[in-house]
Simulated scan of single mutants.
Amino acid sequence: MAAAKCDASFRIEYESSSPITEATVTYLNPPGPTHDIKQLLAIDNTIKLNDIQNDIQAPGTYDLEVKLAVDGVVTKRGFSLNVGRCTSSSCYVPKIYEIKVQEDGQIVMNYWVDTTTNLAALEYQIAKDPGFKDEDIIYSKVGFSDTNYTQFENIDMKNGNIPDKTTLYIRIRKYCRPEGVSEWSDSVEFDSGIWGVEAYCLSGVDDRNKDALCYGTDPAWKMKVTLQPFRPDVGSLICLTNGKPAIPDNIRDFEQNAPENLKKSGIRWIRFLRSNSDFNPSLIYRVKPETGEIEVLEGDVKCY
């Protein structure tokens, strides 16, 4: 990242068993010239635009493309420079120590900043690809921990609309006072957990109705729940997505649109709609309404 008053530069990482025969950088947007950087690249992998011709004269986003060639073999890579913020030498890059995914759907980021003296704000992004292209970024947040710094940031999978069981990447940067912003940290890869699974439920006053549970017809009610532990089994605790056990009082407080039978008597039968190695959507379970625990697998009935 660069600013109009700073030297704009970028670093090229490559491996080649043969000498580079062609190396150029081209301004794509706004359209601009192509510069030969072969001699500069032979000296240092960091290319300073002022060493060629700095065509960046105003704040904005500049899209560039680097082309490297060895004889007839060519590779190209595009990137962007966001001009208008200068990376101050005192605005150091934060570091992500660890990402933990908890069973209640919380992603906990353990991170570090060098000092809070010049801390204006922090920003992080979560993406489906380590390249962090705009179309791959699924969640971002800026402004947290700007006054009361804590080393841990909780990210709620439900509120962030973060997909279950997906390989994701996260990175962080620091905004400094009086001005300046750090580079992005190295990204950290992690696998998201399960923050909820949809299920058809019948209350404690309803008869066991196979068709209702299998097809979601009345009086079955569709709701999202979580499990402790993740996979359904005898003794597994069914919880609401706020983390509380799926018992009548909690259903009444949290699932206000649920049928009155569920609010009064809780869940008696349940069928989970997820289909994977942990969940079989053809199975129906009997639940203890007063605790929310799975009591038994109804072995004499299946949806298919």
Rank of each mutant, 00 (worst) to 15 (best):
Y124E: 03
N118L: 00
T147K: 13
N209T: 01
I194W: 09
K158V: 15
R171M: 10
F132I: 02
R171G: 13
V142I: 12
D191M: 10
T117D: 07
R173F: 08
T147M: 11
F190H: 00
T167V: 15
N110L: 07
V108Q: 12
D146V: 03
R173E: 10
I194T: 10
T167Q: 14
Y149S: 15
D146A: 11
N154M: 05
K128V: 04
S187G: 07
E183L: 00
E135L: 03
A120R: 10
I172D: 11
T167A: 12
F144I: 14
V108T: 06
V113G: 11
C176V: 10
C176A: 15
S185L: 04
V205C: 08
D104Y: 12
A199L: 11
P178A: 05
E198L: 10
T147A: 13
K174P: 00
E123A: 07
R177I: 06
I137A: 03
T150D: 13
K128D: 02
Y200H: 08
S192F: 08
C201H: 04
Q125H: 08
Q151I: 14
D191K: 05
F190Q: 02
I126H: 01
I126F: 06
E179I: 06
V188I: 06
D191F: 06
D156Y: 11
V181R: 13
Q125V: 05
D156E: 15
G193P: 04
E135C: 02
S192N: 07
L168H: 09
L122D: 12
Y149F: 15
E123Y: 05
G180P: 06
T166I: 07
K133Q: 10
F132V: 06
N161Y: 10
I162S: 14
P163H: 13
Y200D: 04
A120S: 06
I170E: 05
D129V: 05
N209K: 00
Y139H: 14
G180T: 05
A127F: 05
K128R: 07
G193M: 08
Y169I: 11
Q106W: 04
T147Y: 14
L168E: 04
K141T: 04
N118M: 01
D186V: 04
D104L: 04
